[in-house]
Amino acid sequence: MSTTSKREKLLQGVNYAALLLAGLICLFPFFYVLSVSFTPAAEVVRRGVVLIPEQITLYAYNQVLQGYGLGNAYQVTLFRTLVGTGLNLVFTILMAYALSKKSLPGRAPLLMIVIFTMLFNGGLIPTYLLTRYLGLLDTVWALIVPGLISAFNLIIVKGFFEQLPQEIEESAKVDGAGDMRVLWRIVLPLSMPVIATIGLFYAVFHWNSYFDGIMYIRDQQLYPLQVVLRNILLNFQTQTADAVSDTTLPASFLSIQMAAVMLSTVPILLVYPFLQRHFAKGVLLGSVKG
């Protein structure tokens, strides 16, 4: 017994050490982004890779925050992330639940319909034309409707639903619960880990997407965050010889780029830690006896 527990303790130690190493390796680029965002441009060019800046400056953040409808952009993206993710989850969960019932007639062809869309895609121009035809152009709904359900996420949620023991639902039905009640009161609470995960996937997708913003939105008040940030970066990047360049363009726009990255990723990064509490172990404990 004691050798086993000593061996186990050793493995534990190795595990901790390995994880710590992995964590640090993953932290490195982010830390790089963080420190460069506070470093003056001249120092960045001079030194190359900067992990601890010699001088701290808020210049880069000023440049990014100063302009160009960033406040609006945050609002638009926040709206689209909250409302969009909410709708995503509703549609996805409903459809996944129905498709998880193996006894459902026509299930196989319905699933094939979904899977087929994961593999075959009409392309940019047809989707643009459709969005235009539906009158969604230049509205925030053009950012929400086209990506309403991700087939990938749907399949995953369906997979989780399939794994729930049938007895739980059946015993609830025996107690007189209707379908909706079973779904709402029993199935969903048990599926919180996967719902939280898929919700996170959708939320990150909304937060990070910029291509749909560029294609479907012309109204500057409606530009989502990533589009505005991208424009801010492009502003510092264009150095046409023909143009008027009276202002001092920084020697390196790297700091500004990094500041933009920080401003765009820190909010969404903070979401997951809040979701982690949903990953409590043993949610099935005690629900079914025997």
Partner: peptide, 19 residues
């Protein structure tokens, strides 16, 4: 006066023409 994002200009123009 439309000023498209520099690297999306072609895609945007094509989409406009196609529609």
């Amino acid at each position: 006066y439309v000023i498209p994002a520099p690297d999306q200009a072609d895609a945007m123009l094509n989409a406009l023409i196609a529609s």
